[in-house]
Design a protein around this nucleic acid. Structure first.
Lengths: 143, 143
DNA sequence: CTGTGTGCAAACTCTTTGCATAAGT
DNA sequence: ACTTATGCAAAGAGTTTGCACACAG
């Protein structure tokens, strides 16, 4: 069951290559899972499971390696959320998230006109790399 | 060398008691370190070191317990930052942070008129618990 | 062929847990 | 006295590392 994957693989191959990484079978498979399906947030373990489920028996260590390499290459961002696991975001532009307390669930905020007003000046010698907004959600208690 | 600590201890004792916790020596000492010095962000290990340095030989496990109990009681917040350590914030109101990449350093943003415009509506059955803004800083490269 | 990437398992870090002892009311 | 908290050390989760083998150029 490969139908429809060829084209992505080619594009992804290029993307990986341009990041200065060898387009190995594993990296391409991972990049394909990451980037072919729109914006996603996932942990190393989740990506690993997906890869295995997709018939690419990559090791967890390799998943970690790839995620960090992609991050360094600017293809991914690390999400700032509480909790023990590290989440990676395939959308590297300024955009924002809902975070569901107690469930470690993360949504993208439909990237409308949400914005920050009166951004403060960064301290001397520093510049703003990006701005993350996390809107923390609680289940609404019905009354 | 106890000078000046009495008063805080009394206030802190009350605070701990009102959180529904027994004001034990350790909890009071930790609460005192946390709340007597203005807004702070620190990890369990940092607080533990401070406590030991302050002559209160509390165990790390107790520090973790106390931090979580205080958090549940609404006296602390858990900070959403990347990295393996959990940071706790003594300021539980909506306010925002600078985060220095690669150093795991966190500043409060001088809480001026920074604000979010066009906050999105939360999904069905959810309500907004709070909003965190993290401004990620990179060292400015001099050219 | 040469060098980089992968896989495995062990090591490491941060955090949590269980149980005997100590402290608070 | 009775109950709850503390401390220790061991367990647990997530992540990283080292080294032999495999694959890409």
């Amino acid at each position: 069951m490969d139908s429809g994957c060829r084209k992505e693989n080619v594009a992804v191959d290029k993307r990986v290559r341009e990041a200065g990484l060898r387009p190995t079978r594993q990296r391409i498979a991972l990049a394909d899972l990451l980037f072919a399906k729109g914006d996603r947030h996932l942990s190393a373990e989740e990506l690993h499971e997906e890869a295995v489920a997709a018939g690419v028996p990559v090791s967890l260590a390799t998943v970690y390696n790839a995620l960090h390499q992609f991050t360094q290459a600017g293809l991914l961002r690390i999400l700032a959320v509480e909790g023990s696991k590290t989440y990676f975001d395939t959308n590297t532009s300024d955009h924002h998230h809902f975070y569901v307390e107690g469930e470690n669930r993360i949504f993208d905020i439909a990237s409308g006109p949400v914005g920050v007003s009166n951004l403060p000046e960064p301290p001397e010698g520093m510049e703003i790399a990006n701005v993350d907004i996390v809107v923390r959600l609680r289940p609404k208690r019905r009354d």
